[in-house]
Amino acid sequence: MRKLSFIMILILCVSMVNAQKSKVTGASNYLTSGKLDKAKEAIDAGIGHEKCVAWPKAYLIQGKVYQAIYESPLPAYKNLAEAPLKIAYEAYLKCMELDVKNKYSKAIKAQMTNLIPDYTNRGVQFFNVEDYAGALGAFERVLEIQELEMFKADNFAVDTAVIFNAGLAAQKASNFEAAIKYYKKTIEYGYEGAKTYAYLSKVLKDAEKAEESLTYLHKGFELYPDDAYMIVELINHYLLGPNPNEAVEYLDKALALDPENASYYRAKGTVYEKINELEKAKEMYKIAISKDPKDYITQFNLGVMQLNKAGTAHKVVNDIEDQKKYDAALKDIPKLYEEALPYFTKVLEIKPDEQNSITYLKEIYFRLRNEKPEYMKKYEEFKAKLEKM
Protein backbone atom coordinates (compact mmCIF):
# COMPACT_ATOMS: atom_id res chain seq x y z
CA MET A 1 0.00 0.00 0.00
CA ARG A 2 2.84 2.38 0.84
CA LYS A 3 4.53 1.48 -2.43
CA LEU A 4 1.31 2.21 -4.31
CA SER A 5 0.98 5.56 -2.52
CA PHE A 6 4.57 6.43 -3.45
CA ILE A 7 3.91 5.56 -7.08
CA MET A 8 0.76 7.71 -7.04
CA ILE A 9 2.68 10.64 -5.55
CA LEU A 10 5.42 10.20 -8.12
CA ILE A 11 2.88 10.10 -10.95
CA LEU A 12 1.22 13.22 -9.52
CA CYS A 13 4.56 14.95 -9.27
CA VAL A 14 5.47 14.06 -12.85
CA SER A 15 2.06 15.30 -13.92
CA MET A 16 2.66 18.55 -12.10
CA VAL A 17 6.11 18.88 -13.69
CA ASN A 18 4.60 18.46 -17.12
CA ALA A 19 1.86 20.93 -16.27
CA GLN A 20 4.48 23.36 -15.07
CA LYS A 21 6.56 22.97 -18.20
CA SER A 22 3.47 23.47 -20.30
CA LYS A 23 2.67 26.69 -18.42
CA VAL A 24 6.25 27.93 -18.77
CA THR A 25 6.23 27.20 -22.50
CA GLY A 26 2.91 28.97 -22.79
CA ALA A 27 4.28 31.96 -20.88
CA SER A 28 7.26 32.10 -23.24
CA ASN A 29 4.95 32.05 -26.26
CA TYR A 30 2.71 34.75 -24.83
CA LEU A 31 5.81 36.84 -24.06
CA THR A 32 7.01 36.50 -27.65
CA SER A 33 3.62 37.64 -28.96
CA GLY A 34 3.53 40.57 -26.53
CA LYS A 35 0.57 39.34 -24.47
CA LEU A 36 2.07 40.12 -21.10
CA ASP A 37 -1.09 39.62 -19.08
CA LYS A 38 -1.41 36.07 -20.39
CA ALA A 39 2.32 35.52 -19.98
CA LYS A 40 2.18 36.59 -16.34
CA GLU A 41 -0.85 34.40 -15.63
CA ALA A 42 0.86 31.38 -17.18
CA ILE A 43 4.24 31.83 -15.49
CA ASP A 44 2.65 32.51 -12.11
CA ALA A 45 0.79 29.21 -12.40
CA GLY A 46 3.80 27.33 -13.79
CA ILE A 47 6.25 28.49 -11.14
CA GLY A 48 3.97 27.45 -8.29
CA HIS A 49 5.19 23.87 -7.85
CA GLU A 50 8.79 24.40 -6.78
CA LYS A 51 8.87 21.33 -4.52
CA CYS A 52 8.35 18.98 -7.43
CA VAL A 53 10.82 20.50 -9.86
CA ALA A 54 13.78 22.86 -9.89
CA TRP A 55 13.81 23.85 -13.52
CA PRO A 56 16.08 26.83 -14.19
CA LYS A 57 14.31 27.76 -17.41
CA ALA A 58 11.10 28.47 -15.49
CA TYR A 59 12.86 31.22 -13.54
CA LEU A 60 14.49 32.59 -16.68
CA ILE A 61 11.05 32.95 -18.28
CA GLN A 62 9.61 34.40 -15.06
CA GLY A 63 12.37 37.01 -15.03
CA LYS A 64 11.82 37.86 -18.70
CA VAL A 65 8.06 38.23 -18.24
CA TYR A 66 8.35 40.53 -15.22
CA GLN A 67 11.15 42.55 -16.78
CA ALA A 68 8.98 43.01 -19.89
CA ILE A 69 6.13 44.18 -17.64
CA TYR A 70 8.37 46.91 -16.23
CA GLU A 71 9.66 47.89 -19.67
CA SER A 72 6.22 47.99 -21.30
CA PRO A 73 5.01 51.48 -22.29
CA LEU A 74 1.38 50.35 -21.87
CA PRO A 75 -0.17 51.20 -18.47
CA ALA A 76 -2.40 48.12 -18.61
CA TYR A 77 0.71 45.93 -18.67
CA LYS A 78 2.92 48.14 -16.53
CA ASN A 79 0.42 47.90 -13.68
CA LEU A 80 0.27 44.09 -13.69
CA ALA A 81 2.89 43.87 -10.92
CA GLU A 82 3.89 46.16 -8.07
CA ALA A 83 7.62 45.41 -8.08
CA PRO A 84 8.37 43.65 -11.38
CA LEU A 85 12.11 44.40 -11.43
CA LYS A 86 12.61 42.86 -7.99
CA ILE A 87 10.78 39.70 -9.06
CA ALA A 88 12.78 39.57 -12.31
CA TYR A 89 16.11 40.02 -10.55
CA GLU A 90 15.37 37.36 -7.95
CA ALA A 91 14.18 34.99 -10.69
CA TYR A 92 17.44 35.39 -12.61
CA LEU A 93 19.42 34.72 -9.44
CA LYS A 94 17.37 31.58 -8.84
CA CYS A 95 17.99 30.46 -12.41
CA MET A 96 21.73 30.96 -11.92
CA GLU A 97 21.59 28.93 -8.71
CA LEU A 98 19.83 26.00 -10.38
CA ASP A 99 21.67 26.15 -13.70
CA VAL A 100 24.64 24.00 -12.65
CA LYS A 101 25.50 23.22 -16.29
CA ASN A 102 25.47 26.89 -17.29
CA LYS A 103 22.93 26.18 -19.99
CA TYR A 104 21.25 29.56 -19.55
CA SER A 105 24.26 31.68 -18.54
CA LYS A 106 24.34 33.73 -21.77
CA ALA A 107 20.61 34.41 -21.61
CA ILE A 108 20.84 35.42 -17.96
CA LYS A 109 23.76 37.73 -18.67
CA ALA A 110 21.81 39.43 -21.47
CA GLN A 111 18.84 39.99 -19.17
CA MET A 112 21.00 41.19 -16.28
CA THR A 113 22.72 43.62 -18.65
CA ASN A 114 19.32 45.10 -19.50
CA LEU A 115 18.41 45.28 -15.82
CA ILE A 116 21.18 47.84 -15.30
CA PRO A 117 19.45 50.66 -17.27
CA ASP A 118 16.07 49.44 -16.01
CA TYR A 119 17.09 49.86 -12.37
CA THR A 120 18.89 53.13 -13.18
CA ASN A 121 15.70 54.54 -14.69
CA ARG A 122 13.69 53.21 -11.75
CA GLY A 123 16.03 55.01 -9.38
CA VAL A 124 15.50 58.26 -11.27
CA GLN A 125 11.72 57.73 -11.17
CA PHE A 126 11.79 57.18 -7.41
CA PHE A 127 14.01 60.25 -6.96
CA ASN A 128 11.71 62.47 -9.01
CA VAL A 129 8.71 61.60 -6.81
CA GLU A 130 10.85 62.12 -3.68
CA ASP A 131 10.91 58.44 -2.70
CA TYR A 132 14.58 58.70 -1.83
CA ALA A 133 14.80 55.37 0.01
CA GLY A 134 13.36 53.69 -3.09
CA ALA A 135 15.85 55.54 -5.29
CA LEU A 136 18.74 54.44 -3.09
CA GLY A 137 17.58 50.82 -3.28
CA ALA A 138 17.38 50.97 -7.07
CA PHE A 139 20.83 52.56 -7.49
CA GLU A 140 22.33 50.03 -5.07
CA ARG A 141 20.81 47.22 -7.12
CA VAL A 142 22.58 48.58 -10.22
CA LEU A 143 25.89 48.47 -8.36
CA GLU A 144 25.10 44.98 -7.07
CA ILE A 145 24.39 43.68 -10.58
CA GLN A 146 27.59 45.21 -11.94
CA GLU A 147 29.54 43.37 -9.24
CA LEU A 148 28.23 39.94 -10.32
CA GLU A 149 30.88 37.42 -11.30
CA MET A 150 29.49 37.16 -14.84
CA PHE A 151 30.58 40.75 -15.54
CA LYS A 152 34.10 40.55 -14.05
CA ALA A 153 35.77 39.67 -17.35
CA ASP A 154 34.02 42.52 -19.16
CA ASN A 155 36.00 45.18 -17.29
CA PHE A 156 32.99 47.47 -17.03
CA ALA A 157 33.84 51.12 -16.47
CA VAL A 158 32.90 52.11 -12.94
CA ASP A 159 29.45 53.71 -13.04
CA THR A 160 30.44 56.79 -11.06
CA ALA A 161 27.16 58.58 -11.85
CA VAL A 162 25.18 55.80 -10.16
CA ILE A 163 27.51 55.83 -7.15
CA PHE A 164 27.08 59.60 -6.82
CA ASN A 165 23.30 59.34 -7.24
CA ALA A 166 23.20 56.63 -4.57
CA GLY A 167 24.94 59.06 -2.23
CA LEU A 168 22.55 61.84 -3.16
CA ALA A 169 19.49 59.62 -2.63
CA ALA A 170 20.87 58.40 0.70
CA GLN A 171 21.48 61.99 1.80
CA LYS A 172 17.91 62.96 0.87
CA ALA A 173 16.64 59.92 2.77
CA SER A 174 18.73 60.97 5.83
CA ASN A 175 20.62 57.69 5.56
CA PHE A 176 23.88 59.34 6.54
CA GLU A 177 25.94 56.15 6.78
CA ALA A 178 25.10 55.16 3.19
CA ALA A 179 25.55 58.72 1.91
CA ILE A 180 29.02 58.98 3.47
CA LYS A 181 29.96 55.61 1.98
CA TYR A 182 28.90 56.50 -1.57
CA TYR A 183 30.24 60.07 -1.53
CA LYS A 184 33.64 58.82 -0.35
CA LYS A 185 33.57 56.23 -3.12
CA THR A 186 32.66 58.97 -5.62
CA ILE A 187 35.64 61.01 -4.43
CA GLU A 188 37.91 58.00 -5.00
CA TYR A 189 36.96 58.12 -8.68
CA GLY A 190 37.17 61.92 -8.92
CA TYR A 191 33.57 62.32 -10.00
CA GLU A 192 31.64 65.63 -9.67
CA GLY A 193 34.69 67.37 -8.24
CA ALA A 194 34.04 70.05 -5.64
CA LYS A 195 30.34 69.27 -5.38
CA THR A 196 31.01 65.81 -3.94
CA TYR A 197 33.32 67.26 -1.27
CA ALA A 198 30.68 69.83 -0.37
CA TYR A 199 27.90 67.23 -0.18
CA LEU A 200 30.05 64.87 1.88
CA SER A 201 30.93 67.69 4.25
CA LYS A 202 27.24 68.49 4.71
CA VAL A 203 26.35 64.86 5.43
CA LEU A 204 29.19 64.51 7.91
CA LYS A 205 28.01 67.65 9.67
CA ASP A 206 24.45 66.31 9.81
CA ALA A 207 25.85 63.06 11.20
CA GLU A 208 27.50 65.11 13.98
CA LYS A 209 31.02 64.56 12.65
CA ALA A 210 31.97 68.23 12.60
CA GLU A 211 35.75 67.82 12.55
CA GLU A 212 35.71 65.41 9.60
CA SER A 213 33.15 67.63 7.87
CA LEU A 214 35.47 70.65 8.00
CA THR A 215 38.42 68.52 6.85
CA TYR A 216 36.62 67.55 3.65
CA LEU A 217 35.46 71.12 3.11
CA HIS A 218 39.03 72.42 3.20
CA LYS A 219 40.32 69.47 1.18
CA GLY A 220 37.79 70.28 -1.52
CA PHE A 221 38.88 73.91 -1.52
CA GLU A 222 42.55 72.91 -1.81
CA LEU A 223 41.77 70.78 -4.86
CA TYR A 224 39.27 73.18 -6.44
CA PRO A 225 40.25 76.67 -5.24
CA ASP A 226 38.45 78.41 -8.11
CA ASP A 227 35.23 76.44 -7.88
CA ALA A 228 32.39 78.79 -6.92
CA TYR A 229 30.33 75.97 -5.38
CA MET A 230 33.18 75.00 -3.05
CA ILE A 231 33.81 78.62 -2.06
CA VAL A 232 30.14 79.20 -1.29
CA GLU A 233 30.06 76.14 0.97
CA LEU A 234 33.01 77.49 2.94
CA ILE A 235 31.38 80.91 3.14
CA ASN A 236 28.19 79.36 4.51
CA HIS A 237 30.14 77.22 6.97
CA TYR A 238 31.88 80.20 8.56
CA LEU A 239 28.99 82.61 8.12
CA LEU A 240 26.69 80.36 10.14
CA GLY A 241 29.35 79.38 12.67
CA PRO A 242 30.81 81.05 15.74
CA ASN A 243 33.56 82.82 13.75
CA PRO A 244 31.79 84.58 10.87
CA ASN A 245 34.78 86.89 10.23
CA GLU A 246 36.63 83.86 8.79
CA ALA A 247 34.16 83.91 5.89
CA VAL A 248 35.63 87.21 4.61
CA GLU A 249 38.65 85.47 3.03
CA TYR A 250 36.41 83.21 0.98
CA LEU A 251 34.00 86.01 0.13
CA ASP A 252 36.88 88.01 -1.31
CA LYS A 253 37.86 84.95 -3.35
CA ALA A 254 34.28 84.60 -4.57
CA LEU A 255 34.09 88.27 -5.53
CA ALA A 256 37.34 87.98 -7.47
CA LEU A 257 35.72 85.22 -9.52
CA ASP A 258 32.33 86.93 -9.86
CA PRO A 259 32.45 90.64 -8.97
CA GLU A 260 28.89 91.29 -10.15
CA ASN A 261 27.30 88.75 -7.81
CA ALA A 262 25.14 90.74 -5.40
CA SER A 263 24.69 87.82 -2.99
CA TYR A 264 28.42 87.85 -2.16
CA TYR A 265 28.25 91.53 -1.16
CA ARG A 266 25.15 90.81 0.90
CA ALA A 267 26.93 87.92 2.63
CA LYS A 268 29.92 90.14 3.33
CA GLY A 269 27.56 92.74 4.77
CA THR A 270 26.09 90.07 7.02
CA VAL A 271 29.57 89.15 8.27
CA TYR A 272 30.38 92.76 9.12
CA GLU A 273 27.01 93.15 10.81
CA LYS A 274 27.66 90.07 12.95
CA ILE A 275 31.04 91.37 14.08
CA ASN A 276 29.53 94.81 14.73
CA GLU A 277 31.35 96.69 11.97
CA LEU A 278 28.12 98.37 10.96
CA GLU A 279 29.44 101.01 8.57
CA LYS A 280 31.24 98.35 6.55
CA ALA A 281 28.08 96.27 6.63
CA LYS A 282 26.02 99.16 5.31
CA GLU A 283 28.57 99.81 2.57
CA MET A 284 28.42 96.16 1.43
CA TYR A 285 24.61 96.16 1.51
CA LYS A 286 24.52 99.31 -0.60
CA ILE A 287 26.80 97.71 -3.20
CA ALA A 288 24.62 94.59 -3.22
CA ILE A 289 21.55 96.69 -4.00
CA SER A 290 23.39 98.53 -6.76
CA LYS A 291 24.21 95.17 -8.32
CA ASP A 292 20.71 93.82 -7.86
CA PRO A 293 17.95 96.40 -7.26
CA LYS A 294 15.44 93.56 -6.79
CA ASP A 295 17.33 92.20 -3.79
CA TYR A 296 14.63 92.64 -1.15
CA ILE A 297 16.58 90.68 1.46
CA THR A 298 19.33 93.29 1.52
CA GLN A 299 16.74 96.06 1.71
CA PHE A 300 15.24 94.25 4.69
CA ASN A 301 18.66 93.88 6.34
CA LEU A 302 19.29 97.61 5.98
CA GLY A 303 15.89 98.34 7.49
CA VAL A 304 16.59 96.11 10.48
CA MET A 305 20.03 97.70 10.94
CA GLN A 306 18.47 101.16 11.02
CA LEU A 307 15.75 99.98 13.37
CA ASN A 308 18.37 98.53 15.72
CA LYS A 309 20.27 101.82 15.56
CA ALA A 310 17.11 103.72 16.51
CA GLY A 311 16.34 101.26 19.32
CA THR A 312 19.84 101.54 20.76
CA ALA A 313 19.73 105.34 20.66
CA HIS A 314 16.31 105.30 22.29
CA LYS A 315 17.60 103.19 25.18
CA VAL A 316 20.47 105.62 25.72
CA VAL A 317 17.99 108.53 25.85
CA ASN A 318 15.81 106.67 28.33
CA ASP A 319 18.75 106.43 30.70
CA ILE A 320 19.21 110.24 30.78
CA GLU A 321 18.07 111.53 34.19
CA ASP A 322 18.21 115.24 33.49
CA GLN A 323 14.79 116.20 32.13
CA LYS A 324 15.99 119.00 29.83
CA LYS A 325 18.73 116.84 28.35
CA TYR A 326 16.27 113.97 28.03
CA ASP A 327 13.70 116.12 26.18
CA ALA A 328 16.36 117.48 23.85
CA ALA A 329 17.78 114.08 23.02
CA LEU A 330 14.31 112.51 22.56
CA LYS A 331 13.56 114.91 19.69
CA ASP A 332 16.16 113.16 17.52
CA ILE A 333 14.72 109.66 18.00
CA PRO A 334 11.70 109.81 15.63
CA LYS A 335 13.98 110.72 12.74
CA LEU A 336 16.04 107.58 13.34
CA TYR A 337 12.90 105.43 13.15
CA GLU A 338 11.74 107.30 10.03
CA GLU A 339 15.01 106.44 8.32
CA ALA A 340 14.07 102.74 8.48
CA LEU A 341 10.78 103.28 6.63
CA PRO A 342 12.15 103.49 3.04
CA TYR A 343 13.88 100.13 3.32
CA PHE A 344 10.81 98.18 4.45
CA THR A 345 8.65 100.10 1.97
CA LYS A 346 11.05 99.06 -0.80
CA VAL A 347 10.82 95.45 0.31
CA LEU A 348 7.05 95.56 -0.22
CA GLU A 349 7.48 97.11 -3.65
CA ILE A 350 9.54 94.07 -4.60
CA LYS A 351 7.67 91.47 -2.53
CA PRO A 352 4.24 92.84 -1.54
CA ASP A 353 3.35 90.08 0.92
CA GLU A 354 6.58 90.02 2.93
CA GLN A 355 5.02 89.67 6.36
CA ASN A 356 7.99 90.70 8.51
CA SER A 357 8.28 94.03 6.70
CA ILE A 358 4.56 94.65 7.08
CA THR A 359 4.89 93.96 10.81
CA TYR A 360 7.83 96.34 11.18
CA LEU A 361 6.05 99.08 9.24
CA LYS A 362 2.97 98.73 11.42
CA GLU A 363 5.11 99.00 14.57
CA ILE A 364 7.16 101.96 13.31
CA TYR A 365 4.10 103.91 12.18
CA PHE A 366 2.43 103.25 15.54
CA ARG A 367 5.52 104.55 17.31
CA LEU A 368 5.48 107.67 15.07
CA ARG A 369 1.69 108.15 15.07
CA ASN A 370 1.90 111.47 16.89
CA GLU A 371 4.56 112.91 14.61
CA LYS A 372 2.41 113.30 11.50
CA PRO A 373 -1.31 112.71 10.86
CA GLU A 374 -0.60 110.43 7.89
CA TYR A 375 1.44 108.11 10.07
CA MET A 376 -1.64 107.08 12.02
CA LYS A 377 -3.37 106.26 8.73
CA LYS A 378 -0.38 104.22 7.69
CA TYR A 379 -0.49 102.34 10.96
CA GLU A 380 -4.16 101.49 10.39
CA GLU A 381 -3.38 100.42 6.83
CA PHE A 382 -0.66 97.96 7.80
CA LYS A 383 -2.57 96.73 10.83
CA ALA A 384 -5.49 95.83 8.56
CA LYS A 385 -3.18 94.19 6.06
CA LEU A 386 -1.65 92.01 8.75
CA GLU A 387 -5.05 90.97 10.06
CA LYS A 388 -5.99 89.72 6.59
CA MET A 389 -2.87 87.55 6.26
Rank of each mutant, 00 (worst) to 15 (best):
G48M: 08
F6W: 10
V53E: 13
L12T: 01
S72I: 08
Q171H: 04
P242T: 14
N29D: 14
F221K: 13
K21R: 14
E130I: 03
T120F: 08
Y66L: 11
K51V: 13
E71I: 06
A107F: 12
L148K: 15
V248M: 07
V232M: 07
L257I: 13
F126I: 06
I87V: 12
F176P: 05
V124L: 06
E349H: 07
A27T: 02
A173S: 14
K103P: 03
G311R: 08
V271N: 05
Y285F: 13
V53H: 11
K195V: 08
E233P: 00
Q355K: 13
K253P: 06
Y337Q: 02
M1I: 14
G63P: 08
K378V: 00
A179S: 12
K282S: 13
E321Q: 13
Y182P: 11
S213L: 02
P75Q: 06
I235F: 00
L234P: 09
I231W: 07
K280E: 15
Q20N: 03
K205V: 04
E149Y: 11
I333A: 02
V232S: 11
V158H: 04
K184E: 14
V142A: 10
I47S: 05
E283A: 15
Q62A: 12
C52E: 09
K383N: 10
A313H: 02
N128V: 12
A194V: 11
R266L: 02
E41P: 00
N276C: 09
I289D: 01
M284F: 11
A91R: 06
C13T: 14
L368E: 01
P244Q: 04
N261K: 14
Y326S: 10
S263A: 12
L80S: 03
I47D: 04
A198G: 13
K35Y: 14
S33F: 14
N114I: 03
Q299L: 10
A107D: 15
L214I: 09
K378S: 07
V317Q: 05
D227P: 11
D258Y: 07
T345Y: 01
E277Y: 09
L31P: 09
L368V: 03
N243G: 04
D322Y: 01
L98K: 05
A133V: 08
Y197M: 05
S263C: 02
M8V: 07
K362C: 00
K346Q: 05
C13V: 13
N356C: 00
A88L: 03
E283D: 13
P56M: 04
A83Q: 12
A228N: 07
E273W: 11
A76S: 11
L98Q: 09
K372D: 00
H314K: 05
I333Y: 02
R2N: 02
M8G: 01
I11D: 01
M112T: 01
K324H: 00
V65T: 06
T25M: 10
D154V: 05
N18G: 08
G63H: 07
R122Q: 09
N79M: 09
L200C: 05
K205Y: 09
L148G: 01
K280L: 15
V271A: 02
L278A: 04
N245G: 10
V24R: 00
T298I: 13
I43T: 05
K346C: 00
N318Q: 12
S72G: 08
S22F: 08
T120K: 12
Y132T: 15
L93K: 15
D206Q: 13
A133H: 05
V100N: 07
M112D: 02
K324R: 03
G48P: 01
W55H: 11
L74Q: 12
L239S: 14
K23T: 03
K3A: 04
I116Y: 14
